[in-house]
Design a protein around this nucleic acid. Structure first.
Lengths: 350, 350
DNA sequence: TGGCAGCTCTGCAACGATGCAGACATCGTG
DNA sequence: CACGATGTCTGCATCGTTGCAGAGCTGCCA
C-alpha cells in the first residue's frame, strides 16, 4: 500500500492540498470545522509527511555529516558525541560515518553522486585527502576539516596546536628527570602530517632541554592502535639501552604500550613513564591511569559546527578560517606514580 | 551564486534537459558531438546533481540510520563499524546517531517531522522506547530493533541470548571454584530489560551449581559505565565477607571494577576473578586483560541490515522476525591469571 | 522511391511538498 | 449601502530530477 500524500488526504477531506498542508504545519488560520475534518482524514490515512519532498522545496535537510576514519577509535567516538551535541544546539542533526581510513572511501565521499550530498554540510576528519581531491568534489555542501591536513588555506579548519601539544607532553617527561625519552607513532610519509607535527614538538622539547635526539628511540607505527603501541614498546625495551620514558602520539598507542610494559614486569612510572595524547576516558581507568594531553573536544566540536553553520547560512564571509582549539596536560599515574598507597609504581607481584 | 541545475546546463549547451541528464547518468546513447558539448557546459557551470531531487523522484535515499544510546560506549562504536560495513555490502550508506540515552530524544526520533524520515530504514538500539511509542511513529521507514526490548512481536529484532550469555559467564567463574560471586549492573526497573535478563542468567547459573543467591552481592548501577563499576567493586570489597569473583553486566563496568580492585591491592584473579560481557577491544589491553562473553557483532550487524533491507525492498514477508545472534566466552587473564610469567596474579608492588 | 528499423534526441508529466497571489465570504465602519 | 479590512481557503507555479512516449533523422533494403 502506497504511503498517503497530502493529495490523498485532501481528496478524502474534501479540501485543497494547500489546506491540508496548512493544518499539518499549523501555518495559516484554519477554521475549527475544517481542521477537524482534515485531522480525521489525516488519522484515517495515517499520513506522514515526505521529508525528502519537503527538503527539496526548502533546499535544505537540516542534516550535518561528520566523517571520521574510525568510529571505534575512542577519540573519534568522543568527538562524535560532542559534535552531535553542538549540532543540536544550532538546530542541526549530525549523523556520523566512517571511512575505515580507506583513501578510496574518503575520495568516494566527495563524488558527484555521493549520498552525503543530502547533507547541508560536512565535517571531515581526513587522513589521505589532498587539496586536489577537495577541489574537484562533486559535493555542493560546505566542508569544514578537522586536523592539520591540507593547510593551504582553501578550507576551514579546526585543530589543536599539535606541535605544542607534543612538546608539552615531552616536557612533562623531561620535568620528571627523564632523559632517554622514546616516541611511538611517527609517520614519516606523505599522509602522516599530524604525526609529523607531533614529532616536531617532541624534538623541540628535547632540543630545548639539551637532550640529544636519538633516532633509535623513535618508532614509527602505521596506525594509532593499541596493538601497535604494545609491539613498539616491547621493541624499545629490548634495546641495549632502553628508554626511561615513552611519549606516544595518541592514547591508544600509550595504552598498548602500558600493557606490554606492565606485563613484562617493567614498573610504570618508576622504570618507564608513559604519556599519550587524546584525553580519552579509557585512560582514566587503565592501571596505572594514563597521563595525556587532552584536546578540548567540546571546543573542537563547537568551533567546527559554528564554522560550518556560518558557511551554510551565509552569515560569515566565505573566507576559510583556520581555528585553533585548546589542549590541556593531564598528568596521571603513568607519569606521576600511584599516590596514597605508599608505593611508587606498579609491577608484577608474585 | 545559485547552484547550476540541469536546466542551466541544457540552456548553455543548447540541448534538452533530458539529454544532459542522460549524459550525467550515462543512460541513453548520446552522440559524441553532443556529449562533448554537454560535458563542456557541465564543467563550465561546475554542475553537481541535486541529490534531494533525485531521491524524491526515485522514492529512496539509499541511506540507513543506526541509532544507539551512546556512541562513545565502545560496544556501540564497534557495532557501528560492523553495521556500516554490512550496509555497504547491501548498497546502503549507514549513518549513525546517538540519543545520549535520553528518553525524550528517543521518542523524538519517531516524530512526524523527524529528519530521520529521510532514511530508507532505521536500526534502533532503544533504551526506553515502548511498543506504544513505536506504533504511533510518524516515520514511514521500516525499523529493526537491537536488544531485547519490546518483545511483543510487532517489530523485527536482533539480539543475543542474554540469559545464556550471563549464565555462561557466571558458570565460568563457578568452574574456577569461586563460590561468592558478585554481580554488578542489575537494573530492577522498567527500562532495564537487558540487565534483568542477565540477572536471570546469573541466578540460573548459581542455582544449577547449588550456590545460594545472596542479594548483598548484587549491585545495581543506573548505567553501564566504568566509573559506576569501579564504585560498585569498592563497595563489594568493603562487605564483611567480600566476593571471590565478580560478574559484570558489561565490559565497561568490569574495567572500572578491575581498576578499583587492582588499585586497592586486590589480586586479580587470585583474590577476585572478574568477567564482563561485550567483547570490546579495550578488554584485550587492560592489565590484567578482561575475560568476557562476546556477542558476535558482525553477525548482529549483518542480520540487522539484512532484515531491514528485506523490509525496505519488500523481498521478505513483513512479518517481524526475532533473530538470535551468537555469543562466545573469551576467558582471559582476569579469570585465568597471567600465564607465562611464573606469577599468578597482578597487584601492587613496592 | 517507399517503407521500415534503429538511433538520437526532446518535451511533458510526475515525485510530494510549499510559496504566492488572489478568490470569496464575512464583518465593521462611515 | 458602499467600502475596505480581515479571515479562510484555493489553485497554480515551483523545487530539480527522472520516466515515458514519441518526434525526427539516417540508412538500408526491396
Amino acid at each position: 500500500m502506497r504511503e498517503a500524500t497530502l493529495k490523498d488526504v485532501a481528496t478524502r477531506a474534501g479540501v485543497s492540498i494547500r489546506t491540508v498542508s496548512n493544518v499539518v504545519n499549523g501555518y495559516a488560520p484554519v477554521s475549527d470545522a475544517l481542521r477537524a475534518k482534515v485531522e480525521t482524514a489525516l488519522g484515517e490515512l495515517d499520513y506522514r509527511p515526505n521529508v525528502i519532498a519537503r527538503n527539496l522545496k526548502q533546499g535544505r535537510s537540516g542534516l550535518l555529516g561528520l566523517v571520521v576514519p574510525e568510529l571505534d577509535v575512542p577519540y573519534f567516538a568522543e568527538l562524535a558525541r560532542a559534535t552531535i551535541a553542538a549540532g543540536r544546539r544550532h538546530g542541526y542533526t549530525v549523523m556520523v560515518d566512517q571511512t575505515d581510513a580507506d583513501p578510496e572511501r574518503e575520495r568516494e565521499l566527495l563524488t558527484r553522486n555521493s549520498r552525503l550530498a543530502l547533507f547541508d554540510g560536512l565535517i571531515l576528519s581526513p587522513l589521505t585527502l589532498t587539496v586536489q581531491d577537495l577541489r574537484v568534489r562533486g559535493n555542493r555542501a560546505p566542508i569544514v576539516l578537522l586536523g592539520e591536513h591540507l593547510f593551504d588555506g582553501s578550507f576551514s579548519h579546526v585543530a589543536i596546536d599539535n606541535v605544542a601539544a607534543a612538546r608539552e607532553a615531552t616536557e612533562h617527561l623531561i620535568a620528571l628527570g627523564r632523559t632517554r625519552i622514546a616516541a611511538i607513532g611517527d609517520q614519516p610519509y606523505q599522509t602522516g602530517e599530524t604525526a609529523q607535527l607531533r614529532t616536531a614538538g617532541y624534538r623541540q622539547a628535547l632540543e630545548r632541554a639539551g637532550i640529544a635526539y636519538d633516532p633509535r628511540l623513535v618508532r614509527p607505527t602505521e596506525r594509532f592502535h593499541r596493538r601497535l603501541g604494545a609491539a613498539a614498546a616491547t621493541e624499545l625495551m629490548a634495546l641495549p639501552s632502553p628508554p626511561d620514558a615513552i611519549f606516544c602520539y595518541n592514547d591508544l598507542l600509550a595504552l598498548g604500550a602500558l600493557r606490554s610494559l606492565v606485563r613484562a614486569g617493567v614498573r610504570v612510572p618508576d622504570d618507564v613513564a608513559v604519556i599519550g595524547i587524546d584525553g580519552i576516558e579509557e585512560g582514566e581507568f587503565s592501571m596505572p591511569s594514563l597521563s595525556t594531553v587532552a584536546p578540548d573536544k567540546q571546543q573542537i566540536a563547537t568551533l567546527a559546527v559554528e564554522s560550518l553553520v556560518a558557511l551554510i547560512e551565509g552569515t560569515a564571509a566565505p573566507a576559510p578560517a583556520e581555528v585553533r582549539a585548546a589542549h590541556t596536560l593531564l598528568p596521571r599515574e603513568s607519569t606521576l606514580g600511584i599516590s596514597g598507597l605508599g608505593v611508587s609504581g606498579l609491577g608484577i607481584s608474585g
